[in-house]
Amino acid sequence: MAAAWAYLHEFNMASVTLRLVLAMVSGGMIGMERGRKRRAAGFRTYILVCLGAALTMLLSQYEFTMLSTRWSALAEEIGLRTDISRFGAQVINGIGFLGAGTILVTGHQQITGLTTAAGLWASACMGLAIGAGFYECVIPAFVLIFLCIRVFPIVDGLIQENSRAMHIYVELESLDNVGTIIGRVKSQNMQIFDLDIERGREKRGQYPSIVFSVRLNQRRSHAQVLSTIADLDCIRVIREI
């Protein structure tokens, strides 16, 4: 057992792959819990961020190892004294600003773009590894990131559909109908733990809206919940966010 642990602490293909997979699983477990509570950053976002962070640490270790072994003669020849990992740090900081530009709050009070921002950041980390020639890490990292973006949306959708927490956006004719809608929500055996009312502007043709944060006391289909509330004549638009 001690020999196996020592082997995994070394810098080799098995160790690199295990670290990346462990980052994916650990980030996914935390993100799954956040996804069940209908938070903006959920399953895939946590996986991508955790993968990118692990990839960056592995890249720093790789650069240090190469400078100490294969690149040592070249480093002495050109008089390299700086920490080359700083270049990668600047790239990661810069891509953070780019990713922040993809995060938006829609008119329905819905946050979008978090997974895109996390994907950009993880891809930037992978690009640094490619530029450094860290092929042993790039291949499993690419497979795991692609898996997260292409396949895991199905898992993410199942998590959210079976969640007892819901965020419901409702656009109504008048604020006078707020009591009616609240009564219908409570009649569906749901607990309201947050309520955000936005007054419309008649001059701009905007109608008042409400964002309900509710918890289902018993597991039900989200589509069925929305359909039951949508039966009210005073509701113009209803959707889950």
Score class of each variant (00 low, 15 high):
residue 8 L to N: 06
residue 12 N to S: 06
residue 12 N to Y: 09
residue 15 S to L: 04
residue 17 T to E: 04
residue 17 T to S: 13
residue 18 L to D: 05
residue 21 V to D: 00
residue 23 A to M: 03
residue 24 M to T: 05
residue 25 V to P: 00
residue 25 V to D: 04
residue 26 S to T: 15
residue 27 G to N: 12
residue 28 G to C: 08
residue 34 R to V: 08
residue 36 R to D: 00
residue 37 K to N: 09
residue 37 K to Q: 11
residue 37 K to A: 12
residue 39 R to L: 14
residue 39 R to I: 07
residue 40 A to Q: 09
residue 41 A to I: 02
residue 46 Y to W: 09
residue 46 Y to F: 14
residue 47 I to V: 13
residue 50 C to V: 09
residue 54 A to C: 10
residue 56 T to G: 04
residue 58 L to E: 15
residue 60 S to F: 07
residue 61 Q to R: 15
residue 61 Q to T: 01
residue 62 Y to C: 02
residue 62 Y to V: 00
residue 65 T to C: 10
residue 67 L to P: 00
residue 69 T to F: 06
residue 71 W to M: 15
residue 71 W to K: 12
residue 74 L to Y: 07
residue 75 A to D: 13
residue 76 E to R: 11
residue 78 I to T: 08
residue 81 R to W: 03
residue 82 T to H: 15
residue 82 T to D: 15
residue 82 T to M: 15
residue 83 D to L: 08
residue 83 D to H: 08
residue 85 S to R: 13
residue 85 S to H: 07
residue 86 R to L: 15
residue 86 R to W: 11
residue 86 R to N: 14
residue 87 F to V: 08
residue 87 F to D: 02
residue 88 G to L: 12
residue 90 Q to H: 08
residue 93 N to G: 11
residue 95 I to W: 07
residue 95 I to T: 06
residue 96 G to E: 05
residue 97 F to D: 04
residue 99 G to R: 01
residue 99 G to K: 01
residue 100 A to P: 00
residue 101 G to N: 14
residue 105 V to M: 07
residue 106 T to K: 11
residue 107 G to N: 10
residue 108 H to A: 13
residue 110 Q to N: 14
residue 111 I to W: 13
residue 112 T to A: 12
residue 112 T to F: 03
residue 113 G to K: 06
residue 115 T to C: 11
residue 116 T to S: 15
residue 118 A to W: 00
residue 118 A to C: 04
residue 118 A to K: 00
residue 119 G to T: 03
residue 124 A to H: 05
residue 126 M to S: 14
residue 127 G to W: 01
residue 127 G to T: 01
residue 127 G to D: 02
residue 129 A to I: 02
residue 131 G to D: 05
residue 134 F to P: 00
residue 134 F to K: 02
residue 135 Y to I: 11
residue 136 E to D: 03
residue 137 C to V: 01
residue 138 V to P: 00
